[in-house]
């Protein structure tokens, strides 16, 4: 389909330049993202951490093409994707995995996973099914392809959804707090799964969370965001070697980064809390 997908030239670098987003629903202007800039290299596992409702999702939705931005520019692989004047349409090169899951309940696992290639017309149905079966097998998800999403566990559903995204060979994987509603045990399984997928594919990952430990465990770079309006407060380079597993959680590097992170986030959390109190009063 495309030569660059084979790994010759890495794809998926994102450049976010002075992006501002103002929501203006009924005259009350709300500044969601304020002059935010970041450079994400191709193949980087980038994690945004910040308090709930700080504007992280706004940034993700702009990359995904669900809405535009007010000023600034977002570039993808050296092409202008999004600016104040230009809103891209969503596309299979930037696939989103949603907070509450968005597997189509009326389709089986196999139909869900092949949805992308089938609607894009790049593959015949049989070919797509073959590829999907192979991929599900490699990801340890065999035997459930004829089940409906409601019949498998929430951890399985998340993994299937990531598989559905990977079937499209996207340039960027956009994950919007995908493991938010999960219990701690299920989380360890899906974390490992996502790390494996990342290690094998080296896709650019844009991951949003409010969970510090998750951010450091998964990410190569962790961007700590301020309370709304979202600005970047601090950037951490996570130099824990890959492939990572649960043992990384007790390494000295991890603990040091976590300490750094907690301090930065705590300040923001306090600010958010006080702002909330002011709004109440």
């Amino acid at each position: 389909m495309n030569a660059s997908a084979s790994g010759m030239s890495p794809r998926g670098s994102i450049s976010i330049r002075e992006v501002t987003k103002i929501y203006d629903p009924d005259g009350a202007k709300v500044l969601a993202v304020d002059n935010c800039s970041m450079e994400i290299e191709a193949g980087e596992f980038c994690v945004l951490v910040g308090p709930s409702g700080c504007g992280k999702t706004t940034l993700l939705n702009a990359i995904a093409g669900f809405h535009g931005i007010t000023t600034g520019e977002i570039w993808l692989d050296g092409e202008l994707l999004c600016s104040g004047a230009r809103t891209p349409s969503p596309g299979a090169d930037r696939i989103v995995v949603f907070q509450n899951g968005a597997l189509f309940p009326w389709f089986t696992v196999l139909e869900n996973v092949t949805f992308g290639p089938v609607v894009q017309g790049g593959m015949s149905k049989a070919e797509a099914h073959d590829r999907a079966r192979t991929m599900l097998g490699q990801m340890g998800l065999m035997g459930i392809e004829n089940n409906y999403p409601s019949e498998i566990s929430s951890g399985m559903r998340r993994r299937v959804e990531i598989a559905r995204a990977m079937m499209n060979d996207p340039r960027v994987l956009l994950l919007d707090e995908p493991f938010r509603a999960m219990d701690a045990l299920t989380k360890t399984v899906v974390h490992q799964f996502l790390l494996d997928v990342y290690d094998k594919s080296r896709k650019t990952v844009f991951f949003i969370t409010h969970d510090l430990e998750e951010a450091i465990f998964l990410g190569s770079k962790v961007y700590i965001m301020t309370t709304r309006p979202a600005r970047i407060k601090k950037v951490l380079d996570v130099d824990i070697p890959r492939p990572r597993d649960f043992r990384a959680l007790s390494s000295a590097t991890y603990l040091r980064l976590k300490q750094e992170c907690i301090e930065a986030v705590h300040e923001e959390a306090l600010k958010a809390f006080k702002a909330g109190e002011r709004e109440m009063a």
């Binding site: 093409g65 669900f66 696939i95 968005a102």
Partner: peptide
Amino acid sequence: VYFRAAHSLGAKPRHVFFK
């Protein structure tokens, strides 16, 4: 969210309608 997911996966209007 299903509409967003479908668009994100590259669905055209007729796919949105039928699928």
